[in-house]
Design a protein around this nucleic acid. Sequence first.
DNA 1: TCCCATAGTGTATAGTTATTCATTTATGTT
DNA 2: AACATAAATGAATAACTATACACTATGGGA
Lengths: 158, 158
Amino acid sequence: MGNRTERLLAIRNIISSQKVSNQEELLELLEKKGLNYTQATLSRDLKFLKVNKISDRGRGYIYELPDQHHLPGQEMAETYAAQGFVSIQFANKLGVIKTLPGYAPSIASMIDKTNPFEIVGTLAGDDTILIIPHDNVSEKDVINTLIMILPELKDKIK
Amino acid sequence: MGNRTERLLAIRNIISSQKVSNQEELLELLEKKGLNYTQATLSRDLKFLKVNKISDRGRGYIYELPDQHHLPGQEMAETYAAQGFVSIQFANKLGVIKTLPGYAPSIASMIDKTNPFEIVGTLAGDDTILIIPHDNVSEKDVINTLIMILPELKDKIK
DNA sequence: TCCCATAGTGTATAGTTATTCATTTATGTT
DNA sequence: AACATAAATGAATAACTATACACTATGGGA
């Protein structure tokens, strides 16, 4: 069952990094990653992920993740938040992020804003964040999700 | 030829005011306004208007106009700008808006921000704005467009 | 263990949208 | 006006996407 989350993550990855104009195309890209399934399932996945199909400047339509508004200042806020990240550990299926003092709320807020399906919720203190993953979501999935939210974390994790 | 702009305006009107989930539905709504045409043309119009089809919170997909961000404060700015409007006249296919002293830039900026296809560009002085409409766009089309951008103008025009 | 309920999936197909082709309509030029 | 050219449109259809149905796997309870 871990397969589905893998698929969903891959879909987000692909859509956020390149233009995809239909499901057949996306299906092929997923095949290259070793993920084989059908158009029907993909359609359902896209609906689940709330992916939109938007105008590519009048030249056709492409898929886009929701909440990609990226308001001005958003990137700076991300960079700031990521700087406060210290480490992540897992225990009893729960993730525990340690941050510099005072940084926990801002990092948790980044996660909550994205509202990834892999993470049911977060609980932030001053320098600690508790991550509550969905059932059947692996530690690796959680980490990948965090990196997707805050790409700067890639160097800091593992 | 004024018919096409009429259609395009109507489409924007409908989409901005209610949920529409497919072209057949939109076609019927347009019929009620006395605009009869086919799905093929509608598909082309939507592409032209860069209309997106976005997730309706996971429950299906609906059409949405581009640039509907409407940041906080936007409405107040519109009200302010509209207050400075004095009159509009046409000469040689060009529109000339007179405003209270100092208001021209803010009104012109409202127009430019919306970037309506009916208007190629604007030129603002201190109390005068030159509106350069697209070829084949009538005075009425320009006025309707302006009202769509700044609804408060409705009472001030004509 | 054996049901039952639930979620996930593929196949086939229904539903929806874009495009090709033919035709008409508008525009510009002499 | 007469012609050439470009733009707009509808009908038919191709291309694309969503869903009904059947089936399977999984995870509780009894």
